[in-house]
Amino acid sequence: MFQETPLIQKKNRQQTIARTIFMIMAVLAIIPLITIFIYLFYKGSPALSWEFVSEFPRRRMTEGGIFPAILGTFYMVALSLIIATPIGVLAAVYLNEYAGNNWFTRIVNLAVVNLAGVPSIVHALFGLGTFVMFMNGPCLLAASLTLAIMTLPVIIASTKQALEAVPMSFREASWNLGASKWQTIRTLVLPNSFSGILTGIILQVSRAAGETAPIMFTGALYFRKQLPDSIFDQSMALSMHLYTVATQGSQIPEKIQFGTAIVLLGLVLIINAASISLRVYFRSRKKW
């Protein structure tokens, strides 16, 4: 018969303690998230309705919806992506596929890593000092450019990572068959890193949608009666709207503040969920 010696008993005891500690930490990590959810829904759900997301605010924000803010956020994020994605992806392809390992690429890589760590308020001040000055005042385009500058380094970094995940041996095999670098990139590297590149971009969408500081001075405003007519107009935006209804007005009902927060959080979560399901879908079709 198998006897439990004191040593084995000690081992089992330690194992139980270790597992319990790890589990408690794991639970602790998700408590804030769940609490935020419950709290927001408890406070804000009375405000949620079709009118809330489809109408303009009325009576100094105390009634009505937040449609202009949703649309403004959509405009800003979409425009910033249109600017940042081609530059970021193509720059990453150059850095990873074409550039040799020399002082220039090392400096660019270092700059990319450091830019990704710059606080968003610094990007905001930069946007204010350049784009807003240049365009004679804040507008959608200036805000989108600021967001683009903010997301660009991260898009470059994530795209590079996706490209690096394609094994070097595929490229070598292709070159050995007489294919040029561009043919190799077009037929092998990009199709097989597409999901990774896309995931990186989508995650930047949710980041850009949630940031307040970069758009505060550059193109978002507190309230506007009309929707923006062009990219040279200012616009409301969700994050900015949340900031103002939460801090500026004393008459604004609590449910509108929390309702706005739910919409913003929901939007970000939906985008993240889309990114995750894309990744799962592409992983199931992984070709090697």
Binding site: F170, N176, G178, L188, N192
Partner: peptide
């Protein structure tokens, strides 16, 4: 590229392209 097209190469570890 023309040079490489005139030469077939087979390396020790097989690399099936993801096609």
């Amino acid at each position: 590229h023309d040079l490489r097209r005139r030469i077939g190469m087979v390396f020790p570890l097989p690399v099936g392209l993801p096609l």
